[in-house]
Design a protein around this nucleic acid. Structure first.
Lengths: 381, 381
DNA sequence: CTGTTAGCGCATTCAT
DNA sequence: ATGAATGCGCTAACAG
C-alpha cells in the first residue's frame, strides 16, 4: 500500500529523488540514497508497475500463440521462446488456441490495447492478409506467411523434404505413405513451386510456408525416383486419438507399404500398431518421423527423424520480436522510416532472407532455420 | 494514437460520455452513443488498457509457474489452467522454471508490483514458509504445501498409491521397482504418516503433499503383503535422458524384478528397454505408469496407469485463484475479515477439506482430486 | 442524462 | 544534486 510519496515523506525528500534511487539513474548523494532506502525498508515499499507501464506505454509482455501445448513440438517451442524472452527481460503470455473459446483475435486485441508489446503467432490463422496489415503493431510469425509487414521464422522444409526423400530412395523403398494435417488449408498453387530454395520462396509473399511444404517436396522427389506415395490425413491435430486412427489406416488401406513418414506422435502410433500387427521395423517397414521431439525417443523404439531446431527457431523469433518492438517505437516517435531497422538484422542469421518492397518501404522477411536428419532404430542404413 | 479526448472532441461530447459508451455502463442517449461510436470508428480509436489497469489496480493476469513444459503432465495441466482462466476473463503468464534463469521469485515480484493478480505455484519451491506468509497477495499451490495462508489443490496420492498397490498384489508380483524424483526434497518425517487420509493429511500443514506421497503408501502396502520393493531415483526431471538411464538401471540392478511403477516417461522408457532386452510385458513384467498422460498411449504399448484428473485439478485451481483474488480485494477494501470468504468455497468440492486456524483467522485449505486406475496392455488381469 | 474534475502511482523535464 | 510540477490515458464521483 505504501506509495512513492509515503517513502519520500518518511525520508524527507521529494518523490523524484526516490524515483532516482529506485531506478538507480541520475545522481543522488549517498546520504540521500541511504535515507531513502531506509525509508523503503521501513515502509516495506514495493513499486507499482502499473503506473510505470502506463507512463512508458509498455508492459514487457509478449503474447505467444500456439495451437496447443499438448504437442511436445509446440510445448518445447513455447518453452524455448519463454527462455529467450526471459533473457531480454520480457514475459510470455501463453495462448494455446485449442484451449480457448476466444481465438487469436483476443491477443491481437490485447496488442492493440497495449497490454502486449508484441505477438508471436504460431497458430494457423483464418484472418485475412488485410487484417494483419491493419494491425500496425509488432507481430512475428512462426512458419507461416501473414502479410508483407510481418516477418516469419520457420523451418527450411524444402531441405527437410529432401532429407527424407534421399534417405528413402537410398534405402530402396517402393511404397511410401505419409501422414499429415489437412492440406486444404494451404495454398495449393504452391504445389508447383516446391523446388524453390528459401530465397526464392521468400520472394513469394503470396504463398505460405507451413510444415506441409516438406510433403510436397517429398512427393515430387519420390515420384521422380519412381516410388509410389499416398497421403493419410489427420483432420484435427489437437485430437490425439486421430493419430492412432491414422496409424491403423496406413496398414489397413495400403498392404504393401514399406515406409511411413509422419509427425512424431503419428510415427509413435505407427510403431505401436506395427508391433501389434507383427510388422518388424525396420526390416519390413521404414519409419521416419518429422519434427524430432522427445516423443521419437520414448516411443516403442527410437525413431529416425528430421529434427527441427526449436531452440534456434525460438532464438530467432525473439530477435525479430525485439526488432519489431524497436521498429514500431521508432515509428511512433516519428524518427526513422519503416524500412530502416531491417537492415541491421539482416546479417544476424546465416539463412536470413530479406526482400525489400520498395513501394511500401517495408520488407517481408523470411528467416529459415536448417533441419537435420538423425538416423535411429527405425530405418536401415 | 487517438485518445479518449480526441474522440470526445470529435463527437462534441465529454470524455466521460465516451467512457460510458466504451464500457456500456450507465445511461447514454442513443444519439450521443451513435455520435461517439461514429467518432471512434473515424479515428480508429482503441482504448489503452494500461490506464484502465492503473486505475483499477488489476491486470486480469495470473502467473502460472510450472517446472517445465517439456513434460506432457505439466503442459497439459498448464493448458487446462489456461482454459479455465480464460473462461473467467483472465490471462495466463507462463513460467516454466526450467526454461528460466530467474526463478519463481521473479513472478512473486510481479505479483507484488501488481503486474500479476495472482500466482498459481506448480513448481517446487525452496523458499521458506515465512517467505510465503509474508507475500500477502493471492497465491494458490498445486500439489504442495507452502504455508497456512495458501490453499492447495492436489491429487489424492494416498488413494493413488493404494490403487497401484492393490493391483500389484492382486496380480501376484514378488519384486517391485519404482522410479521417481529425488526424495530428499520431501519431508521425511511424513514417512510415518502415509496411511493418513486426505483429511488427516490436510490437518498437518507442516508436511508437503507432493506426488511422491504415493510411493510411501505403495511401499508400505507392498511390504505389508510381503513384496520386495526398490527405488530408482531420477535426479533431474527436466533432463529427459535420465529416464532412459533409470529404465536401464531397473534391469541392470534388479534381475528378478517383475513389476515396475514409474511416472509416464520413465514407464515408456521401461517399455522400450524391455523390448530391447527381450522381456515380455506383461508376461514377464508388469508396468504401471503414474500420471496417465498421453505418453502412456503413445509408448511401445498402451500402458496401464493411475490417471490424474488434470482437467478437474485445473478447474479447482482456478476457482481457488478467483476466491483468493476476491478475498484480498475485500481485505484491501477494509470490509470483511480474512476468514470470511473461505466458507463459501468449502462446499464447492466433494473432497474439499478445510482446517480453520482460529488464531490467524485464515485456514489452510487442501483440495484433493481423486485419482483413477486404468487397465491397459501392460498389466495382467 | 451529460460534463467537469480529480486522481490512479510513478517518471521526468525543468528550474533551483 | 534535488524538488515542484506536469502528464501517461482512463474512470468515477459529483455537479449540473
Amino acid at each position: 500500500m505504501a506509495g512513492i510519496r509515503d517513502v519520500a515523506k518518511k525520508a524527507g525528500v521529494s518523490t523524484s529523488t526516490v524515483s532516482l534511487v529506485i531506478n538507480s539513474s541520475g545522481y543522488v548523494s549517498d546520504k540521500m540514497r541511504a535515507r531513502v532506502t531506509a525509508a523503503m525498508e521501513e515502509l516495506n515499499y514495493i513499486p507499482n508497475d502499473l503506473a510505470k507501464n502506463l507512463y512508458r506505454g509498455r508492459t514487457n509482455t509478449v503474447g505467444v500463440i500456439m495451437p496447443t501445448l499438448q504437442h511436445p513440438f509446440f510445448a518445447t517451442l513455447a518453452g524455448r521462446i519463454q527462455h529467450y524472452l526471459d533473457t531480454q527481460g520480457l514475459h510470455a503470455i501463453l495462448c494455446s488456441t485449442a484451449d480457448q473459446q476466444t481465438g487469436e483475435t483476443q491477443y491481437v486485441d490485447m496488442l492493440q490495447r497495449h497490454t502486449l508489446d508484441a505477438v508471436i503467432m504460431g497458430s494457423h490463422s483464418t484472418l485475412s492478409q488485410e487484417y494483419w496489415e491493419s494491425i500496425k503493431r509488432p507481430v512475428v510469425a512462426f512458419d507461416r506467411y501473414l502479410c508483407d509487414f510481418i516477418p516469419t521464422v520457420g523451418g527450411d522444409h524444402i531441405t527437410g523434404g529432401r532429407l527424407v526423400a534421399k534417405k528413402l530412395i537410398d534405402t530402396g523403398v517402393q511404397h511410401v505413405v505419409h501422414i499429415g494435417g489437412p492440406r486444404g488449408r494451404y495454398h495449393d498453387r504452391a504445389r508447383g513451386e516446391q523446388l524453390l530454395n528459401a530465397r526464392e520462396l521468400s520472394s513469394r509473399p503470396d504463398s505460405s510456408f507451413p510444415t506441409v511444404r516438406y510433403q510436397l517436396v517429398l512427393e515430387d522427389e519420390l515420384h521422380a525416383a519412381g516410388i509410389e506415395t499416398n497421403f493419410v490425413t489427420v483432420e484435427d491435430l489437437s485430437d490425439l486419438d486421430l493419430f492412432h486412427k491414422a496409424a491403423s489406416a496406413v496398414f489397413d488401406d495400403y498392404s504393401d507399404v514399406d515406409a511411413v513418414v509422419a509427425p512424431d506422435l503419428a510415427a509413435a502410433a505407427v510403431i505401436q500398431e506395427a508391433r501389434r500387427r507383427g510388422t518388424r521395423i525396420p526390416e519390413d517397414m521404414q519409419v521416419i518421423a518429422y519434427d524430432g521431439t522427445y516423443v521419437t525417443t520414448f516411443a516403442g523404439q527410437q525413431i529416425s527423424a528430421v529434427v527441427q531446431n526449436l531452440d534456434e527457431t525460438a532464438r530467432r523469433l525473439v530477435v525479430h520480436t525485439m526488432d519489431e518492438i524497436e521498429r514500431y517505437e521508432k515509428i511512433n516517435r516519428g524518427d526513422g522510416d519503416m524500412a530502416q531497422s531491417v537492415e541491421s538484422v539482416s546479417n544476424e542469421h546465416r539463412n536470413y532472407v530479406s526482400v525489400f518492397d520498395t513501394e511500401s518501404g517495408v520488407p517481408y522477411r523470411f528467416d529459415a532455420v536448417k533441419l537435420e536428419y538423425v538416423e535411429r532404430e527405425t530405418t536401415k542404413h
